[in-house]
Design a protein around this nucleic acid. Structure first.
Length: 222
DNA sequence: GCGACAG
DNA sequence: ATCTTGTCGC
């Protein structure tokens, strides 16, 4: 079995604990190229379609796109999500013409039981800054941020702030932002807001989601 | 033991 | 995540 992608939960847990010690949740990168990462699955869940869409920053022009098909070999276990979806996302990322200097991942970063959600996990493996953006909390509690775009409320877990509930669009439920790696909380929130335009989810993630679903449709036909 | 639980 | 149509609302 691949040392970076064990297929046994026990081995995954051990690796996650080791990776968590290498997570650096601070920094304020000024990226020029940002990649949004997301995945879609076949109806039976046996096949995964990872997508990576590259955007210029701060201009937010799409400048690249890639996807990869992967056999899913790890079950969905809340705290071990990275071991299920990580392989497909990395495969897509490797197919990009240029390497991003920041990745936006659909899922949590430090807002995780061991402060090592998929965003932190991939950031450490790749050695590049990363940010996690999720639709709902895995751990912790957050107050309701004010209704206007840009408002944010801290996510508390075990007595510390591990992320933020961020209102990327007025009057719409917030997204949960947490540092992945080499990015601090304030910078993570600022960057996600700078990449959100009129929709709840930031542009790179919207594009990645669309790319993954489209890839599945094209593969499903042939 | 019971309930919670990213995508 | 995925299975699924129409429908209410801006």
């Amino acid at each position: 079995m691949h040392p970076l992608w064990p297929d046994k939960p026990a081995a995954a847990l051990a690796l996650q604990t080791r990776l968590s010690q290498r997570v650096v949740a601070r920094g304020a990168p000024a990226p020029a190229l940002v990649a949004g990462l997301d995945a879609a699955y076949s109806r039976n869940g046996a096949t995964g379609y990872g997508a990576a869409v590259l955007f210029s920053f701060p201009g937010l022009e799409q400048v690249g796109e890639a996807w990869a098909v992967c056999e899913v070999r790890f079950p969905y276990i809340p705290r071990l999500f990275a071991f299920r979806e990580g392989p497909a996302l990395c495969a897509a990322l490797e197919r990009l013409d240029r390497a991003p200097d920041l990745i936006l991942v659909h899922g949590h970063g430090t807002a995780h039981p061991r402060r090592c959600g998929i965003a932190s996990h991939l950031g450490v493996l790749l050695g590049i800054p990363s940010i996690g953006v999720a639709d709902r909390l895995l751990v912790g509690e957050a107050g309701e941020p004010a209704a206007e775009r840009g408002a944010a409320a801290p996510v508390f877990f075990e007595g510390e702030v591990v992320g933020w509930a961020v209102r990327t669009r007025a009057g719409v439920r917030p997204v949960y932002v947490s540092p992945g790696h080499l990015v601090g909380q304030a910078a993570a929130v600022e960057l996600v807001l700078a990449m959100s335009r009129g929709y709840r989810r930031p542009e790179p993630l919207r594009a990645a989601h669309h790319c993954a679903v489209t890839a599945r449709a094209e593969m499903t036909k042939r």
